[in-house]
């Protein structure tokens, strides 16, 4: 856009060129796909067979739209820092394709719509949990935590961890301890995942003024905390076996994956020079995605194939 114009004028110039795809990009499709997957696992792992699959699928759609809506609200709020960071400057608002106000309206509208649809298709508990998830991500994490504390992604991780609980609640109307174990796996997985990313993107976060752990407490402390959280997540990932909603087969997968995750964290912790730290953090970041996917996929497969119990 043109440098000498104010933000409002630039937004006006871009207003009429926005495509439907730009609005879809506001929903963070990759995050949405992870939410769909984890919420589906929550639904399938819940006790008792799903007796109404069409309603369960509509509920899943509502959960994913709700997650996307919170992504749009996050992009609305963070458009200033998104424009500074290499990872996010191509997003619809900083790239000038969508106006901030339109992203806000879009996110708010879809938030309300998704909660209403989930209440109609499933139940009020699931709808309430979805509403809380959206509120937590858009308001608590984006508006308060993200720019104020290096614990931002630790506490904020609760928003990303809630979808399996919402899924569980959607098909059972309850949210027992087992559902919160699924929550805990993602909750304790989030810090090593994002801190590994922030180790090799620390300049980006520094430029945007976001107090991520490496910028505030330093690399050594970040590596130590990554190691601690990896131990916790590896241990928690095994607990479904003891709560009888996963079999020994899942337990074996969780132990092996946890071991590999832990080995990656130890390698990162032991990395002495800059190059080794970069390599180890990139490798750990990549594996963390693979880890979460496989842990949840193992649970999904067990329940779909009837192997558990």
């Amino acid at each position: 856009m043109t440098d000498h114009l104010t933000d409002d004028q630039n937004e006006t110039l871009a207003f009429n060129l926005a495509q439907p795809g730009d609005y879809f990009a506001l929903l963070k499709p990759r995050v949405m796909s992870l939410v769909i997957f984890t919420a589906l696992v929550g639904m399938v792992a819940a006790p008792g067979a799903i007796d109404n699959w069409p309603l369960a699928l509509i509920s899943l759609l509502a959960i994913s739209v709700g997650a996307g809506a919170s992504g749009a609200l996050n992009m609305w709020w963070d458009s200033d820092i998104d424009a500074v960071m290499s990872r996010t400057k191509g997003r619809p608002i900083p790239s000038g394709k969508v106006q901030r106000a339109d992203a806000f309206g879009f996110g708010l509208f879809l938030s309300v719509l998704s909660v209403i649809v989930l209440a109609l298709a499933a139940n009020y508990l699931a709808a309430g949990l979805l509403a809380f998830t959206i509120f937590f991500y858009a308001v608590i994490y984006s508006m308060f935590l993200k720019r104020s504390t290096p614990q931002n992604i630790v506490i904020g991780g609760a928003a990303g961890a809630l979808p399996p609980v919402v899924g569980w609640a959607a098909v059972t109307g309850t949210a027992p301890l087992e559902a919160w174990l699924l929550f805990a796996i993602i909750f304790f997985w989030t810090p090593p995942h994002f801190w590994a990313l922030s180790l090799f993107k620390s300049e980006d976060y520094e430029a945007a003024g976001i107090p991520m752990m490496p910028n505030v407490k330093g690399e050594a402390r970040t590596k130590l905390e990554i190691l601690i959280y990896t131990v916790i997540v590896a241990a928690i990932a095994i607990t479904p076996v003891f709560f009888a909603f996963a079999s020994w087969l899942y337990g074996a997968v969780a132990v092996i994956l946890g071991g590999v995750f832990l080995a990656g964290s130890i390698r990162l912790y032991a990395a002495k020079d800059e190059a080794a730290t970069m390599r180890a953090s990139k490798s750990l970041f990549g594996f963390s995605i693979f880890y979460l996917f496989l842990i949840y996929a193992a649970l999904l497969a067990e329940h779909l194939l009837g192997l558990h119990g």
């Binding site: 109404n52 069409p54 309603l55 509509i58 759609l61 719509l113 649809v117 109609l120 298709a121």
Partner: peptide, 15 residues
């Protein structure tokens, strides 16, 4: 959205 609401209504009624 209209189709979705219609489906939800029918599925709930059937239940």
């Amino acid at each position: 959205f209209v189709v979705l609401i219609y489906l939800i209504t029918m599925l709930r009624l059937a239940e």
